[in-house]
Amino acid sequence: MNIFISNINYSVKETQLQELFSSYGSIESTKIIMDRETGRSRGFGFVEMPDSDEARSAIESLDGALFQGKNLNVSEARPKEEKPRRSFNNRY
């Protein structure tokens, strides 16, 4: 199950996030999303857990939990929506 985590302290590293979630089960991957221009954390990321029951347990336990000075928002990740490309050349 893919888990979405927001309100992550900007100083948190992927290894710290993996350690936090690993107490609930095995982790396939951990990813903190970085800003392309600054290289700084954008304050959200994803954790992939292969066992759905372990993932649900992690979500229930860590949603709202204080971690590195901030209360995490943890939920099941939704698939990225495909948005139509915007064209600025269209004339009516």
Rank of each mutant, 00 (worst) to 15 (best):
G64T: 06
V47T: 02
V74N: 00
I59Y: 00
V74Q: 01
F4W: 11
R91N: 13
G25N: 05
N2Y: 01
I59R: 02
F44N: 07
I33H: 05
E82G: 09
L20W: 06
F21I: 03
F44D: 02
S61G: 08
K80C: 07
R56F: 05
L72E: 02
D35I: 09
F4N: 05
P84R: 11
E28V: 12
R86E: 02
M34S: 12
R85H: 09
Y92C: 01
T30K: 11
F4H: 13
L62S: 01
N89T: 09
S11A: 15
E37S: 13
P79N: 02
L66N: 07
T30S: 14
K31S: 13
G45V: 10
I3H: 02
N9Y: 06
R40K: 15
T38P: 08
K13H: 14
E48K: 14
R78M: 10
G69N: 10
F4Y: 15
L62M: 05
S6W: 07
D53H: 04
R40F: 14
Q18M: 07
R42Y: 00
Q18G: 04
D35L: 12
L72W: 04
M49G: 00
V12N: 03
E48A: 14
M49H: 02
G69C: 10
Q68I: 09
N7Q: 13
E14N: 14
T30A: 12
T38E: 11
N71F: 09
L72H: 03
M1D: 07
I27R: 07
A77T: 06
R78P: 00
E76V: 15
K13L: 15
S41Y: 06
F88N: 05
N90A: 07
F46G: 04
K70T: 12
L17M: 11
K70A: 11
N89C: 00
S29L: 12
Q18S: 08
S29T: 13
R85L: 13
Y92I: 04
N9L: 10
T38C: 11
N71K: 15
Q68T: 08
K83L: 15
N2I: 03
E37L: 13
A77L: 07
I33F: 05
L20R: 06
R85G: 08
S57D: 01
P50S: 13
M1I: 09
Y92V: 02
M49P: 01
Y24K: 06
K70I: 04
D53W: 01
E81V: 14
N7P: 06
I5Q: 02
